[in-house]
Amino acid sequence: MGKTLLNVEDLVVAFSMYRGDSLKKENLEVIHSLSLDVKEGEILAVVGSSGSGKSILASAVLDLLPKNAVVSGKITYDGKPLSMKTTPDLYGKEISFIPQSVDYLDPLMKVGKQVQGVKGSKARQEELFEKYRLGKDTEKKYPFQLSGGMARRVLISGAVMGNPKLIIADEPTPGLDLELAMETLKHFRTLADQGTGILMITHDIDLALNVADRIAVFYAGTIVEIASTQDFLSGRDALRHPYTKALYDALPQNGFKPIPGAQPYAGSLPSGCLFADRCPYRDDACAGAQPEREVRGGKVRCAHAT
């Protein structure tokens, strides 16, 4: 596998907000010491349940967080710090973004012009529309006139406009039927095989297993384990973190066993392991901080993982 494109180290994102009307601002921490990396030509899928704050990760990497966000930790691209201020030229060219739905397209701008953006060209757009089997008339359409499958391909066209080296895709398959979702993922796989690194954020672990090289398991604002896709296919013993194992058990093909309890709310987190109160192996070691450890070629934040 190629060199590391994106590296996120100990990322912490908090939202400073007034609660009620008190004059003191409080920080609500939504992402806690999160680390991951994306290499050239690989798909890293960040998998977690809906509403766990995954999209904030995408916004953080793209430097799109609202003004009241407080960010610490390191985000580097190709070894250099990444931000709108220092590296504005990267966005929309080397780094691109695939949003959740056509709601992210300007409703009053024709699709063709929109795919070109400010950094693309008409010729490249036409070439891409042909490649993704979008009819000649598509460029004259408005976003609301696109069908689900067309919308996906339009958004992908927009993302690959500038021949990106890194693509961030936030929930690229919501509301699509299986066939369309698989088609979208196939496009991703092709792109990755040509050398692009893809960070794919999704709640659908099953789909992720179909295309991703590695799976990062997202829980309550952090990544508890990064395992190769092969580990998931090998079975629950190849996995490291108790939550990952529970997630594995909850898959339809593995008996659909749910985990009791719910993810903790960002405002009232336990001090130690975030999964502790739902974990069957909990003991005193879980009360402390859980640093990232290398275990059997994967990464995990659990004192008990072996």
Binding site: S59, L62, L64, P88, Y91, G92, S96, F97, D103, Y104
Partner: peptide, 13 residues
């Protein structure tokens, strides 16, 4: 709105 976010992500100033 989301489409302004997207435009930013695509490098529009």
């Amino acid at each position: 709105s989301d489409y302004i976010l997207y435009a930013r992500a695509r490098g529009e100033n």
